[in-house]
Amino acid sequence: MAKKLIVVILGLVFSTLTFVAPVLAVTVDSVTMIEQAKEYDKKIIIYEGEVIGDVMRRGTFAWVNVSDGSNAMGIWLSITDAAKIQYRGGYHYKGDTIRVTGVFHRACPEHGGDMDIHGERVEILKLGVKRSIALDNKYIYLSIILSFLACIFAYVGKKRQ
């Protein structure tokens, strides 16, 4: 009976911590994380930013790099969480803006000393979009004019030689 009670109490404490911890966690930006790494080491933090580059799968987990505009931070996620990501930032796309709640590591022992965040909860704050990059007319005209001039210079230069 006593054993059952202990298990129930522990279960309650664990589940409370699981739900309460993210609430207690503070939002930290990348500059603060890097500058005050010791202070936040192994603590649960909240980090927000844009997913950039690739989602790199490693077994049942994946690496995702998330930039808050100052630095990009590596996030270690389950593939279930990684699958929520639809757009990854690059030249053609603005990536999804996500909020990650997880444990920050100043020098992660599991990942060769990388500064990283082991994400426990991921929310998509804003879906990414395809960037509309229209052809700029001024560059079209400029390239035509300069190409024409280049041909003239090349012709005269060749003749002079």
């Binding site: 053609h92 560059y139 390239s143």
Partner: peptide, 28 residues
């Protein structure tokens, strides 16, 4: 499919040819 970027390099190439041949014309 980065069309603006194509233009940046076309401009760069044209300027290189102009500068290069301009120097050659002046020096010959």
């Amino acid at each position: 499919a980065e069309w603006n970027v194509v233009l940046y390099f076309l401009i760069g190439l044209a300027v290189a040819v102009i500068v290069g041949y301009f120097l050659i014309i002046l020096s010959t």
